[in-house]
């Protein structure tokens, strides 16, 4: 697996060369957009990281993990990822801030750190997406859409706990 990323990057560049894409210009244009994303995310990080730090320093986070953690552990998901799991369906930038704290606490290459990363990458902001999409279509009764999305998220989370044990 360590070669997956370099191969992918090589393929993207080689394919771009074959299709005669002005590679350098395209890359620079995209990079500029990416910088914009970092700027867009910054206010959310400034909003979330202090309240997360407060939850940690005050002992509230440890309290939460002690009481709700066993539920996750029973499902095969490390208890340290609980705060991330709670924030993930609500907001992408808030959970990015939470993932940063989790990785700093448990280490990015530890089992819990890899599960947290997998959780983050394999799920979406369910409630935000639902609110946005249903609002746009003027839908008030979403029927089974939300339960199905939550089931998908749970299945992905449990899978993350198991898959990280294998790989």
């Amino acid at each position: 697996m360590p070669n997956a990323m370099p191969v992918l990057i090589g393929l993207v560049i080689a394919y771009g060369l074959i299709r005669r894409v002005p590679l350098y210009d395209a890359f620079v244009r995209g990079a500029k957009q990416g910088l914009g994303v970092a700027v867009d995310v910054l206010p959310f990080l400034v909003a979330m990281l202090p309240v997360i730090a407060l939850m940690e320093a005050s002992g509230a986070m440890a309290f939460l993990v002690r009481f709700l953690g066993p539920v996750l552990t029973a499902l095969g998901i490390p208890a340290e990822t609980l705060p991330l799991m709670l924030l993930r369906p609500l907001s992408g930038s808030a959970s990015l801030a939470m993932l940063e704290r989790t990785l700093t606490l448990v280490g990015p290459d530890s089992y819990a750190g890899r599960v947290a990363s997998t959780l983050m990458g394999s799920s979406e902001t369910i409630f935000y997406t639902a609110a946005l999409y249903l609002g746009a279509a003027g839908v008030r009764r979403s029927r089974h859409a939300i339960p199905a999305a939550i089931l998908a998220w749970l299945a992905g989370s449990i899978a993350a706990g198991w898959v990280c044990r294998i790989f």
Binding site: G30, A31, G34, A38, L42, V46
Partner: peptide, 27 residues
């Protein structure tokens, strides 16, 4: 810390976004 994190993230975001622009343009 949030500000320094955003600055460190900016590099990674820019890099991936640059590669994805190539993907976009190559059809």
């Amino acid at each position: 810390d949030a500000v320094s994190l955003a600055i460190r993230l900016a590099g990674g975001f820019a890099f991936w976004s640059g590669l994805m622009a190539i993907v976009e343009d190559s059809g």
